[in-house]
């Protein structure tokens, strides 16, 4: 029993790392643009399909497939922001208009995927076959890879936001747009790239999980819902909160599978959401700006 628990905790961390990736994209957009992106899950889905087509049509290695998915998702994000959100910004109704627009994009992309790529679920092979045995535990290499990649990307991303010229400008814009403008920062350019980066993070999560879950037009719905829980758990706009919340939710879900049964997984996540909203609505770290 103890061994199963430990194994599930490890699985939970793997799942949680993906929640953290998806949620950090959401929280990044909230923190800078003060909007929720309901199309985030579909950008995740697009990432999964690009990986699939990179394998089947181009026959490239996983590394190039992932890079391609990230690149295209980044471009799609830039394009969506420039085309659909930019014209709404600074107009009355900004508190609702992005919700409507991104919900529309989400519905469009789901149905586009359904029409263009079919309803058959698609699978991609593991990037690395085999399992590692360590002290009696068996862990698939794929899962270890997921953990390593997420950890690396999160650390690199944090360094980028903290230290780079773009990162400083991004945080400045999030905290005081007018003051940032006076320093020469073009807020609209920052918003565009923020959207692109957020989409790229979602696509990365999708490609890493694609071998475990299947690729289909609706694959983005569940991660988006979970990411919302994570973001509320950690505090809207908080990066640390998204990471911690992601790992916490992943672990909780995995443990609930052992202790209850897999059908109870979502019940547990949403119960956690309700409890957090009830007792600590601002999340662990509180609502924050970047």
């Amino acid at each position: 029993m103890f061994k199963i628990l430990l194994e599930q905790i490890l699985n939970g961390l793997v799942l949680g790392s993906m929640y953290a990736l998806v949620a950090s994209g959401l929280t990044l957009i909230w923190g800078t643009m003060k909007m929720l992106n309901f199309a985030h899950g579909e950008l995740y889905m697009v990432g999964g399909y690009i990986l699939y087509f990179a394998f089947t049509l181009l026959g490239v290695s996983p590394f190039w497939g992932i890079l391609l998915a990230i690149g295209i998702a980044f471009a799609v994000g830039l394009f969506l922001e420039r085309l659909l959100l930019h014209p709404l910004m600074d107009k009355p109704g900004w508190d609702v208009s992005p919700l409507v627009v991104t919900l529309g994009v989400s519905i469009f992309l789901q149905n586009f995927a359904l029409k263009a790529w079919g309803e058959r679920f698609k699978s991609v092979p593991y990037f690395i076959e085999g399992t590692m045995e360590l002290a009696g535990f068996r862990i698939a290499y794929q899962r270890i890879l997921i953990l390593v990649v997420t950890a690396t990307v999160m650390v690199a991303f944090w360094m980028f936001v903290k230290r780079s010229r773009f990162g400083v400008a991004l945080r400045a814009t999030a905290q005081d747009r007018e003051a940032a403008t006076l320093l020469g920062i073009n807020a609209h350019r920052i918003y565009m790239y923020t959207f692109g980066i957020s989409s790229a993070l979602a696509a990365l999560a999708a490609t890493m999980l694609a071998p475990i879950f299947l690729i289909n037009p609706w694959m983005g719905i569940s991660p988006l819902l979970k990411a919302f829980i994570v973001v509320v758990l950690g505090g809207l706009g908080s990066f640390g909160g998204a990471i911690l919340g992601g790992f916490l939710l992943g672990t909780l879900e995995s443990l609930s599978v052992v202790l209850l049964s897999s059908e109870w997984k979502d019940v547990v996540s949403f119960a956690v959401l309700i409890l957090v909203l009830f007792f600590r609505p601002s999340g662990f770290f509180g609502t924050r700006e970047w």
């Binding site: 945080r171 905290q175 007018e178 003051a179 320093l183 700006e289």
Partner: peptide, 26 residues
């Protein structure tokens, strides 16, 4: 031309150092 706005308008969740770095965005 640089403008120090009314009410300072610093970036409150950034350190002094980071605020100055934001000033060197050009």
């Amino acid at each position: 031309l640089a403008h120090v706005p009314e009410g300072r308008r610093l970036f409150p969740n950034m350190t002094v150092m980071e605020n100055l770095l934001a000033g060197t965005y050009l």
